[in-house]
Computed example of a mutant assay.
Amino acid sequence: MNDDFDAAAFAELLASDTGGLLDAPSTPKPVTSTDRLERSFLEIVEFYREHQRVPSSETLDIAERKLGARLDGFRAAPERAAAVAHLDEVKLLAKPEIDSYEDLLANDDLDLLEEESDIFDTSSLPVIAERRSAKEVSRRVKAKNFEEFEPLFKQMHADLASGEFVIRDFAGEDTIKEGQFFILAGVMLFVAEVGEDEIVASGSTTKKKQRLRVIFENGTEGSMYRQSLSIRFYLQDGRSIVRSGFDASEIGDADVESGHVYVLRSLSEDPQISSIENLYKIGFSRNPVKKRIANAEKEPTYLMAPVHIEEDYRVYNLRPSSLENLLHRVFGSVRLNVSQVGIDGRTYNPHEWFVAPLPVINQAIKMIMTGDIVNVVYDPAQEQLVPRED
């Protein structure tokens, strides 16, 4: 067997490989952060080419809203914009023209200019900053009255563990409502307050904005516009926390959450209270019930004791206080007559506690919603709803 290497024959073989069959396979290049950034920007470019307009971050279309928020993020971050500038054939990164200082403030969708002091405030200079008290500095970092919110976060973790609540993809700006929990950059947050509508000028038009008070589980709080928080959710893979079996996106624009009608059971150790069977408080709250009862043991309306939430009904498109008042009329004959002394030394008469079986209370609430409650009354002797006698 001839082991001599025939260089001429091998060269002839390579020359005859016009299809590249003998070429060494190329090693695929790893996907870098720049590649991902360019790919995400090209999706925006593709949207523009298809629709001949930039995507809006305020539309109800979730897919377009996501692209619009992403474009807002590129425009707000110079380093990100520079990384994809070579792909911007249609000038998507061009910021809206600003004709005046007022326009500049009006177009600050990311709250980049939202500071408590103006540009002439020298308090941030090193020498002056040393004169600021630690108390003043801490107010910018720590959440006020965080001890009132901390139990809500603990309860939410317990509800997640039990499956009562679940984590879902963020479903849009419209789902950011007072009392809702979210996760941003791995930290749970609670929307504690939603401010009144602010009419903000934006060039030749105006738009409504709502300022939020957002409490974070790490003990800090922030103040930002609803739209700004929405953009951060899109940019940082924010998640929603919703009740199991309930999709926050199922609530339409015309459906307005009015509040909560709740049923509570007292955990009082006072024998005069704990010995009463079927004792429940029926009430209404515009805020989440867990927040409302955070200090129950200090409030006479809760009999100066902790309480357990038996039922929590979300009410849409009607006045929950009317529903609550009707329930009080239905069970007025079994209202608890009791007095409580508050921590201020004054005597109070809680009027929202009733002695009736929980299934009957739930039945009454459902009959109110259907309108059938007008045909029945509560009979304390039978402990049930019976037909009304004309």
Rank of each mutant, 00 (worst) to 15 (best):
I119E: 12
F120I: 10
D121G: 02
D121A: 02
D121P: 05
D121I: 10
D121S: 11
T122Y: 12
S124H: 13
L125G: 03
V127A: 12
I128T: 06
R131Q: 14
S133A: 01
S133M: 01
A134F: 06
A134D: 08
K135Y: 04
K135E: 07
E136H: 01
S138A: 15
R139T: 03
R140Q: 05
K142Y: 14
A143V: 03
N145V: 00
N145F: 00
E148K: 00
F149Y: 07
F149V: 06
E150K: 09
E150A: 14
L152C: 04
F153A: 04
F153P: 02
Q155E: 11
H157G: 05
H157Q: 12
A158Y: 06
A158L: 11
L160A: 07
A161F: 14
S162Q: 13
F165H: 03
V166T: 14
D169S: 07
D169T: 02
A171L: 08
G172S: 05
E173H: 05
D174C: 04
T175W: 11
T175E: 12
I176V: 06
I176S: 02
K177V: 14
K177Q: 14
K177Y: 03
F181D: 06
F181I: 10
I183V: 11
I183H: 07
L184S: 03
L184R: 03
G186D: 13
G186H: 11
V187Q: 11
V187K: 09
M188W: 09
M188Y: 10
L189K: 05
V191I: 15
V191Y: 08
V194R: 07
G195W: 00
E196R: 02
E196P: 00
E198N: 07
V200C: 04
A201I: 13
G203W: 13
G203V: 15
G203I: 09
T205E: 08
K208I: 15
K208M: 10
K208G: 00
K209E: 15
L212S: 04
L212K: 06
I215V: 15
I215T: 03
F216Y: 15
F216G: 05
E217S: 10
E217Y: 10
N218D: 15
N218A: 12
N218S: 13
E221D: 14
E221T: 05
G222K: 15
M224P: 02
R226H: 06
Q227H: 13
